[in-house]
Design a protein around this nucleic acid. Structure first.
Lengths: 234, 234
DNA sequence: CGAACGCTTGAACATGATCAACTCCGGTGG
DNA sequence: CCACCGGAGTTGATCATGTTCAAGCGTTCG
């Protein structure tokens, strides 16, 4: 019987990643395939078009998954945080580019081994199926935004999503939102340009709905009701 | 041992639906949960917001899956054809509306039974995982189109997708494309309006890239190279 | 200090949405 | 048989939104 390695015992995402579905005993076996990998901010982990040889759990940091046209337009199709699974299974060529937004720790697996492991650990396969279904629902929600919502609605909706994920109450009882990405990446995510995102953020600010100081990335939601009314009209 | 029912023996999608992963013997058991259901063109099968109680295989016909804003804007997020699986698993409330585009035959299952069946039939669960991953990739490809491509590119790309799926060669060696949906549904799929779709189709026609008679829904791709160059510039 | 970068702001422009009229077609009923 | 109607699609004119191009600001980092 293999031992559970120290890196798994200490792992920050032992209970939130796909590994949450595994017993220590199972983990001991799976971990023999896994390798830790640190990736610096801005580094590309997988290029669209490359051979698709690996997958990973995000241990710390943040990643973006993006699709691009041949002439260089980029659409961010997903953001990944600790505990998330990254990788396209069952296909030999990657169609998406994965890039580290911040310094990131991954727990990587060769794709072939991981696909085999899914057979061995049905609870993990089930958990992956559930997460993939959830990602699909999320992707479809975003198709609605990209296809049918205007810039104002998209920006408002994005702030509310962030508030949901990482919002914290500030002394005055308002929601403080950490924006983990640059304006450019927000634009890439929302299917807009940097300028449009910037303009709508300042419009929300001058309308007294959000607050942020010049040169400050994070913001405070002063009037959540209004923001919700903008994001979900009707 | 239960018998495989006649409806399964005759089934048009026995080898293309999720059932392709099952032996006759397994099918005999699963089929005890399944019920055939016929749905007329235009009928809604599931409303977003309703309790999510069932799922199904598409036996014949065509469905659209759409997301909507509260004020009535609709984005079609998927089209389903025979052999496809329809339904959101693991969630209690449907977030998407499913509508029959044509008269459609379904093989329906109560969601709870089906989720349990996935445990019993690991090969089916695996196949569903593979298909869900493929749907996710497809959804992401469409996010690129909705977020970053202009109307001309979206229309051209859509015609090529159809050609891929159901294209047939006509006497002159050109590709004949059957468009299974109305202009309105094309627009709903592409994140455009009817008028914009119509205009770009006629522009492609006057440019000599495609051909179609007035009042004719299907079209012929005369110059596939040009169409590909438009759909994938750069 | 100067260069680079991220962000904001402004002006001009282009693309697609909106509003409206019209054609074509199939069905219905006198 | 024809008149009428409704739906799907096309086409045109106008308008609004977001993009593009350009300039400027503030911060950080050699």
């Amino acid at each position: 019987m293999t031992e559970v390695p120290q890196r798994c015992l200490d792992c920050l995402v032992r209970d939130t990643s796909l590994c949450a579905s595994m017993s220590d005993c199972e983990l001991a076996t799976l971990s023999t395939f896994g390798r830790r990998r640190e990736v610096g901010a801005g580094q590309v982990i997988t290029w669209a078009g490359d051979q698709n040889s690996g997958c990973a759990n995000v241990v710390s940091g943040a990643l973006k998954v993006s699709a691009s046209t041949a002439d260089g337009r980029e659409q961010i199709v997903g953001l990944l945080f600790p505990g998330d699974f990254v990788g396209q299974l069952f296909v030999t060529e990657a169609s998406l580019t994965v890039t580290a937004l911040t310094d990131t720790d991954l727990c990587t697996f060769p794709r072939a081994s991981f696909e085999k492991a899914l057979h061995t650990y049905p609870r993990m396969e089930r958990l992956l199926l559930e997460r993939t279904m959830a990602s699909l629902d999320e992707a479809r929600e975003r198709m609605l935004a990209l296809g049918r919502k205007d810039a104002r609605e998209r920006v408002a909706g994005f702030l509310l999503e962030l508030a949901e994920r990482t919002g914290s109450l500030d002394p005055t009882g308002h929601v403080r939102v950490q924006i983990p990405i640059s304006r450019g990446e927000m634009a890439g995510f929302l299917g807009l340009t940097i300028e449009t995102v910037s303009r709508h953020l300042t419009r929300l600010k001058t309308a007294g709905i959000i607050e942020f100081a010049k040169g400050e990335r994070d913001c405070t939601i002063v009037n959540r009701r209004s923001l919700e009314a903008i994001a979900n009209p009707g």
